[in-house]
Design a binder for these strands. Sequence first.
DNA 1: TTGTACGCGTTATCAT
DNA 2: ATGATAACGCGTACAA
Lengths: 333, 333
Amino acid sequence: MNKKKPSVLEVAKEAGVSPATVSRVFNNNLKVNSEMKERVLAASKKIGYKRNFYAKALIEGKTNFVGLILTRFEIRHYTGIVSAAESVIDDAGYIFVVTSSKYSKQKEQEKITLFSDLNFAGIVIITVGLSDEEIVDISKKSAPLIIFDRKVKGYEDKCIYFDYCGYQKSITELLINKGHQDILHLCGPTRLQVYKEKFNGYIRAMKENHLSARINYIVSDRATNEAGYNIMKKALKNRKFTAVVCQNDQLAFGAMSAIKEHGLTIPGDISITGFNDVPEAEFTSPSLTTVNFDYAAVGNFIGRKILSEIKKEKFTDSVPFFKIIERKSVKTL
Amino acid sequence: MNKKKPSVLEVAKEAGVSPATVSRVFNNNLKVNSEMKERVLAASKKIGYKRNFYAKALIEGKTNFVGLILTRFEIRHYTGIVSAAESVIDDAGYIFVVTSSKYSKQKEQEKITLFSDLNFAGIVIITVGLSDEEIVDISKKSAPLIIFDRKVKGYEDKCIYFDYCGYQKSITELLINKGHQDILHLCGPTRLQVYKEKFNGYIRAMKENHLSARINYIVSDRATNEAGYNIMKKALKNRKFTAVVCQNDQLAFGAMSAIKEHGLTIPGDISITGFNDVPEAEFTSPSLTTVNFDYAAVGNFIGRKILSEIKKEKFTDSVPFFKIIERKSVKTL
DNA sequence: TTGTACGCGTTATCAT
DNA sequence: ATGATAACGCGTACAA
């Protein structure tokens, strides 16, 4: 049994043509007689020929890999996005692969460099470690690079970002319009742009409505269920708020648990809102009023954006809008 | 400005040695004088030389890619596993990349073939579409292949699987021991081995305790929050159970929502259990009694298993154990 | 339109 | 221990 994979030479011999012709056939090169094409295809099939990806990559200096570098695989609301992006990119004939940086600046850098050295056709990254300047700098020598969920100065047109400030402001205003004045804000780590923006949105909503926001926010280092629970536990010791605006659904879930444990009802005693609309948000008790992030639309957008970048086509679509989903966790005072 | 990347030839010229020597240096080949090594390293650094991955892959016929093929990125309890596996594999110097099949048998097949054609060092797949025979067959011509979360006949030693039957039986018995006799079982799609096994566990627990299981289970096509909600909605119309055993936490979340909406309390009127212990399970009201799946340990196990497979080393570790986490969702009758 | 021959950058082989 | 050279499999300029 001969283990060695057949190459163009074997196919050429089998089909009675030159290796160049075989190559042309597989490149959809038009300059090839249809009869010969048939012969080549038949011969390839017969001996089980497959193009060698690496020989091609070596000579062409490019590949059809598209890489996504996440922060962490565990981020609940990213998973649906990744899935949708994969569909678009797969369908376009590219090989889509995902990795993560685990919030390490060094790993972000290493993986961009790695994928670039591997001549990836395109890279999408969710980066929190690299500075704006570093990103601009790296992008100059890297494969086509798209930044997700962040606006980088001097690189805006390659960034996909959302008006988190505006959305967080809107949902805060929803609470204000329903009569709430003392509104607590549960923040994620504000060194990350996403959380910082949301924080700004909350502050603006409060200020514009002449409400005191100064001491009514708590910044946690991680935006998890657990953090929400722990923070709320403390906050309840000296409660002077009727509503809580959380920067994501997980914080809200944790906070809801603490509130109930404290013997308070939602939304009877305390109203609460989330952000992202993860699948669980509809099935908590009460169901959570939150900001819906259309995963499929966003993932699709990412896919089309990186593909247009690869093909150097214009891409002027504007980012999908989010919408507030009103459920049962907010009471009118 | 010269865009072209330097090759071994440039380095060789710069260092005044032969290309072969340069190659040897970068392969940690011992047969090279330390003084020359210094010269080569210095020259490489000076002109910014980097090994070409594809030239190497072409001649060696192998790479250090390790691929993971998921079903879907959205599966909540897999994300932590992926993360842990990535750490192990990254640290071992391999390039770890993740994709998904979206439950398509064809995609499962395509991606295994793709990764094999790309000479991946190893592949891990969570497969639900391919039959046992097909897997055995494919494995013969593929890169080293590990199957996760499934026991494949004739391929057992390359499979990582758990005693889901036993665990589901145990948690059902927990309910029985607390006095429950009418226990509803919410199933995922039983065409998948994981769900089928859990189903068997429930049945065995009931039978061994001489309880009727025959009509007390409902099979859903998807094991989501929504499915749990919808199923429970219907089941409550003609309630004759005091407890519900769910095959995963999402089903339980949805069911809990429906139960509360129906005006019933948990665990007062109905006790409920989940499976997987996703992060939210601790923060529902009441917190959910469930089976804990140690994500970090399992991911680590996967990583070490595929690495041992790649290196053709023996690997006899046994799979991590799960444990039942008793929280507040079960009442003693 | 088709074939010939060379080059991509590396490692392996065989001398030295 | 080091160097010269072939070989990996493909794409393409150039010749036919």
